[in-house]
Write a protein that binds this DNA or RNA. Structure first.
Lengths: 240, 240
DNA sequence: GAGGATTGTCGTCAATAAGACGATAATCCT
DNA sequence: AGGATTATCGTCTTATTGACGACAATCCTC
């Protein structure tokens, strides 16, 4: 195709660009996703992923982080944020052609679970429930893609630590895996694998009492971000 | 943020949206990427990835496939095409804010390697060379991301077959892995792994003579698209 | 404060898969 | 015919996993 003149760029600006964010966190051992109730058309009253339009001159990552902060009050640096992919089917927004760049964010359990800075109500919904709801736009698909990305990256990265506080126990980590993958793991083999990967966990030397049972050693994330060989999950066992 | 009125969508259309495609193919056992020489500003004369602006009402995948067809004459269905990710840093295009959705395409060796339908010259460049060139825009980064995606997906999918013709030998497949990963694999272990994964390859019963040596059995791709367990690559061995 | 319940950690054993590499098969070349 | 070349099968060793026993260190209850 022929490219535009220098000043004719706006001839090709027929798409609005938005970001939508799949924010996961763990609440009482259960995986939750942040959803907002839409206050305006289209899809008034329906649940949707938090998001909004990219502002002029704003980068995509910046827009995602800004929206995340507006919806949750999350300070950048606490959560892990990465781009998922772009969704641009022509009919996905009834108002017109809107391209959405979806992001995946993982956060530790937050002190204030809900804090909407604008009119929309935001709340944490168990992922198992959210998957059964009819979300606005193609947000159901985006949620499924985000969940699959999170599940896959737990296999071969240290991403699970993004769900944990600065210091955590091996059981904390295992709870993350069990919540995201949806089935229980053997505590002994999990412990062997995670502590046996050099550079993954750094032992603080201290322990933490969890109500009952023997106190667990406290770790913080090490420098290694890649698990090689990976921690394979049992395909076909994930709870929908 | 506050959302626009129904008819105010254009207030948020300040980005132009383009697609850029990383097309890989194998030519004489070497991995090549399709690059075009830019005919207009900015970056006149520089090499860039093929791509162009998304047309009004056009989906992203459709735009990528259209551009791919315009540049290479590739018929949809022959090549594997998947979205890579979106690139939207404000300064990546000197003309203004342009969001690019990058795609990765893998094609078997084509009869007509170069066929530009417009003024730009397109040609296959060995990836080893392309990585050392200063490409236009952030296309160097996109190329590196595309290469990493291809390398990673060979590990756990049957994607290598996308580089091969309809029928192929185990050696053909191994040549794909060696070209993409950049180092040699043991023919015996590779053969055992690939033929030992049920459902991955379907034996046609026929063989093919390759100049010298014993004729090789001809296979076609089976129904299994995921390798479990994966074929792990040797990290830190890849040739740049 | 003794015993049981609970949770964390270490160890053992068998099954599986991968890396190294010998050996044979089926072709081409000279 | 003999050597070179490529394909395929087999063997051995080692690394990793999955299943599960055993012990350690705490809490709870009587």
């Amino acid at each position: 195709m022929v490219e535009p003149e220098l000043d004719a760029l706006s001839r090709y600006s027929h798409l609005a660009v938005a970001v939508d964010i799949v924010v996961f966190t763990l609440i009482e051992g259960q995986l939750h996703v942040l959803l907002v109730t839409r206050g305006i058309e289209p899809f008034v009253g329906k649940l949707a992923l938090p998001g909004g339009f990219v502002l002029a001159g704003e980068g995509l990552d910046a827009a995602a982080i800004r929206e995340l902060q507006e919806e949750t009050g999350l300070v950048p640096g606490i959560a892990h944020v990465e781009q998922l992919r772009a969704y641009g089917a022509p009919g996905r927004d009834p108002r017109g052609h809107v391209l959405s760049v979806a992001y995946l964010a993982l956060a530790p359990e937050l002190p204030h679970p809900t804090a909407g800075s604008d009119a929309r109500e935001a709340r944490w919904v168990p992922v198992a429930d959210a998957l059964g709801l009819a979300l606005a736009f193609d947000h159901g698909q985006i949620l499924r893609d985000g969940l699959e990305r999170a599940r896959a990256k737990l296999e071969y990265t240290s991403l699970a630590t993004a769900f944990c506080a600065d210091e955590f126990t091996v059981s904390d980590l295992r709870a993350v895996y069990e919540a995201v993958w949806g089935y229980p793991l053997d505590p002994r083999n999990f412990h062997r694998k995670l502590t046996g990967t050099p550079g993954l966990l750094v032992d603080t030397g201290r322990t933490r009492r969890n109500g009952q049972g023997r106190p667990a050693s406290l770790f913080r994330a090490g420098t290694i971000a890649v698990l090689n060989p990976p921690l394979t999950r049992d395909e076909g066992f994930a709870r929908p």
